[in-house]
Nucleic acid binder design. Structure first.
Lengths: 349, 349
DNA sequence: GTGAAAGCGCTAACAA
DNA sequence: TTGTTAGCGCTTTCAC
């Protein structure tokens, strides 16, 4: 009738059907490995297989997706791949999902709420089988919409308690609580906390852990500063902190970026670790071991989180395939992180 | 006829056509924003728009892809998202491409050649419009196949000189050459080089730069050690290096991971930087500024590389859309990296 | 054992 | 200004 501009993969089932004089149906069956189920003769099967091989047949996924209303691909929505924590998750999720035969559509939202909304919509239009989302912002209308569209979704790391969507995350509260408690057990009372972006859940939970651990031990909150997860902020806030009359005996930074800034300020001002000030942090980046004084840190169970999220998502997808009306129940999984002990905490007398 | 298990987005053009009593074609035209081109009455247009809105119509990308033989998505093949250099590239490419209306299918190959081959094939089956690849291995049959299938491809960072496929990468050779020259200008002669994985191109080029800079200045190669881009290897190799009778006055590590291992060994053995030994590295990770002695480093123009690669790819896609037979010419772009001067190089009188 | 034909949702050539 | 219809490549029902 009319011509399309781009003949992509010229070899289709039809091509094979014509060259072998076998019907489309049979060709499809052979190539899908259900020959015996339909009792296709060995002869026919061989003929088809040979042709497919010779011509270099590649099945057209798009057509399969349209026909089956399943795309064998899942969307992964990430605040920023430039953040090592997220890119590690992306790496694990990607590999695990590929191993299960899924493709992964990754979107980097640049920590922007607007970008996230656009990404989620674009993914939804692509007949994605499910989505794993690390929310970037506070908005959740577009996420509610996914629930209504019955697209299986799992949140990682950040989540909305009000939404009936499963999540798996680190128990940041407990992590911080335990870490502060550990400092207190080592005789520290004047513990300062340098936090990151205020409104993100992990930060809020960590700060809550700090506060409650202090309260639990009947200590006043010594100091809380900081407002973003950056080197610069860690540096500035530490400088500010060190100006104060009363010096802390320990500092808890809520991320490794903050820690590095803090370290720079500390060394500039002549404080040694752990002799003068003890230090603890979150994230447990590889380089912590290689700093002049290796720093004790909370280690998030990244691999576990990723694996559980995948498991949850695939379960939901399966459940939906069996009964498309079923509303999956919400799973709320919080994993308590561990403390990796290094040399930055001094035991006071 | 028969029922499919998963009614995904129930609202289709047909639904709208039926509820508004407007033909499918007209509905399609209105929704594609070409109403005026076809002089569709304002009345009809409004009716269609209203219905689409009310019903929450979401176009089915899969159907569009099949029909148009264009998927508006491009594949990004990465050795490992856990590597900050690659994840930064992924982040930039992702954002830029989304801004242009493309979706991005990312695959993490875990630095495995086999995984890469599988990924590339899977992407090819998905009617990808183009691919950006950072090759993981030495195999290139599957990449040649892409060329034959006329799928637009651009390599980043690692490339095959023999393949007629465009690439954009850092000029690692010049980077290393300039860095070693800089050390020599500062009076260093005993310059040791600790390298990473031998067979990867960036490593080979960097080592070549070291060797030729030494030869250019008529110095013997002082020392070359190392075999992988890891902390452990950097640590071990430095320990080994420091055992030797003749100590180096400067060390060039070919990655920041190696550097950190090297630093640990240096500090364990009581060497101060830059007093006892000068240090330079590659990668320019953010934390270099925050080490006890900030380390001078080669900085790869990651953003530029990503932007150029995207530009190249989109050009190829456009060219192909216009003339599907045209064989695009190969572009070979090498960008010379800059030296970020910090405090780790001592000037020898 | 094999095949004809319908249809997934969409676009565009052609007709009116 | 609008509509009819073919067909993208595939799976599956139903028939032989």
């Amino acid at each position: 009738m009319y011509k399309l501009d781009r003949p992509l993969s010229n070899i289709t089932l039809k091509t094979i059907s014509e060259t072998t004089n076998v019907s489309l149906t049979t060709v499809s069956r052979v190539l899908n490995g259900v020959s015996k189920k339909f009792r296709i003769s060995a002869e026919t099967e061989a003929k088809v297989l040979e042709a497919a091989n010779r011509l270099g047949y590649i099945p057209n996924q798009t057509a399969i997706n349209l026909r089956l209303k399943k795309s064998f691909s899942i969307g992964l929505v990430i605040p920023s791949l430039a953040n090592p924590f997220f890119s590690t998750i992306a790496s694990i999720v990607n590999q695990a999902l590929h191993a299960k035969g899924y493709s992964v559509l990754v979107t980097d939202c640049d920590e922007e709420e607007k970008t996230e909304v656009a990404s989620v919509k674009s993914l939804a239009a692509r007949n994605i089988d499910g989505m794993i989302i690390i929310p970037s912002g506070k908005d959740k209308k577009h996420l509610e919409a996914l629930y209504k569209q019955k697209i299986p979704v799992v949140f990682i790391d950040r989540y909305f308690k009000e939404l009936p969507i499963s999540y798996v995350a680190t128990n940041h509260y407990e992590g911080a609580f335990n870490l502060v408690n550990y400092l207190i057990e080592n005789g520290h009372q004047k513990i300062a906390c340098i936090q990151g972006t205020h409104h993100v859940l992990p930060n809020m939970e960590r700060v809550r852990g700090y506060k409650e651990a202090m309260a639990y031990n009947n200590f006043p909150e010594f100091y809380i500063g900081g407002s973003s997860f950056t080197f610069e902020d860690g540096y500035l806030e530490t400088k500010l902190l060190l100006q104060r009359q009363e010096k802390p005996t320990a500092i808890l930074t809520l991320s490794d970026t903050i820690l590095l800034g803090c370290l720079k300020a500390l060394s500039e001002d002549g404080f040694n670790i752990p002799e003068d000030i003890s230090l603890t942090t979150f994230d447990n980046s590889v380089y912590l071991d290689y700093l002049s004084c290796p720093v004790t840190s909370i280690s998030q169970p990244i691999a576990d989180i990723a694996q559980i999220a995948i498991r949850l998502l695939l379960d939901k997808i399966d459940a939906k395939t069996i009964d498309s009306e079923a509303m999956p129940k919400q799973e709320k999984i919080l994993i308590t992180p561990t403390i990796i002990h290094r040399k930055s905490v001094r035991k006071l007398n």
